[in-house]
Design a protein around this nucleic acid. Structure first.
Lengths: 157, 157
DNA sequence: TCCTTATGGTCAAGCTGCTTGACCAATGTG
DNA sequence: CACATTGGTCAAGCAGCTTGACCATAAGGA
């Protein structure tokens, strides 16, 4: 075993504990948000759709933009958009400045779903505030932001 | 929009920021551990295998145990074990107390890979200590542990 | 201008990891 | 000793993604 790592200030077992806690928290939070969205009446949506919504929300985006945001191929992004169109959450509009491109924008249902996800997230995080307190949650968020500034938007494993 | 949520102490946008930071941190850390494991010469391993290793490490486990740990069907767990057997990381031994069951245990290569993952995790978390300090990392870990005690081991989305 | 290259998007085929369903061997329970 | 239960595998199918090919528009240079 690498002596440097073995003798590092942060012990291996601690690192694994942090990793496990991080994965558990992320997985649990994602799950709760998803359940909250479903409970609010939005069916046929997966967490992956939420990652797409965060990119589409402000002013829409092209399929290529979305693919870059999600870290997938543009074919995969196109299929995801097609699915969201079928389900009524987004629609394709002609791009105002490029006849090749198509601007994908949220429909009213898409906006409603996005708001539902925000509510569900606030609810789940609110439960955390009951354990850590408002300050604790803020500290957690700030620590994570400082530590993962450029992390992947769509964790895939 | 739900007024209760809108007026909640933790604002929706804050909740989404925390969620994004959490996902980015988890995704980034997983990615770095994976890269560290690959850099140490272990090929053909995916993060999902690491989740399996953490269950098999102490004394081995049955396929059914593993399936429960990973949150999948036992068929999926069986296929994963088959793959790990092919790659030399685990082996199936007869179960000492039940002739139906088979005990899946790590081989020497499996142990080496587990140690490599621990080293890579310690390395990645060590980099975080450079930003947050030792105390900051500890606080982060403790906060996460308090907030996600029973979260899923294998985040899937 | 025309030709060439780059870019946005889709269609089609294939692969991988998982699921459901069926089944067998061994266990335990009355 | 029947009979339901449990551990495990085989087989088929599905969902989400990838690679490869292709078309339409755009951008840039001679």
């Amino acid at each position: 075993m690498c002596q440097g790592c073995f003798n590092a200030p942060v012990q291996n077992s601690d690192a694994m504990a942090l990793t496990a806690a991080l994965l558990a928290a992320a997985g649990g939070l994602t799950q709760r948000i998803h359940e909250g969205v479903v409970a609010r009446g939005f069916e046929g949506v997966r967490p992956a759709h939420g990652f797409a919504f965060t990119r589409l929300a402000p002013d829409g985006a092209t399929v290529t933009d979305l693919a870059a945001h999600l870290g997938t191929t543009k074919q995969a992004a196109s299929q995801l958009v097609e699915e969201l169109v079928r389900k009524g959450y987004v629609e394709r509009r002609p791009h105002p400045a490029d006849a090749r491109a198509r601007l994908v924008v949220l429909t009213e249902a898409g906006w409603a779903c996005t708001r539902a996800a925000e509510e569900a997230a606030a609810e789940a995080v609110g439960a955390w505030a009951g354990v850590l307190g408002e300050d604790g949650v803020r500290a957690l968020r700030d620590g994570l932001l400082r530590v993962a500034p450029g992390g992947p938007i769509r964790p895939a494993w």
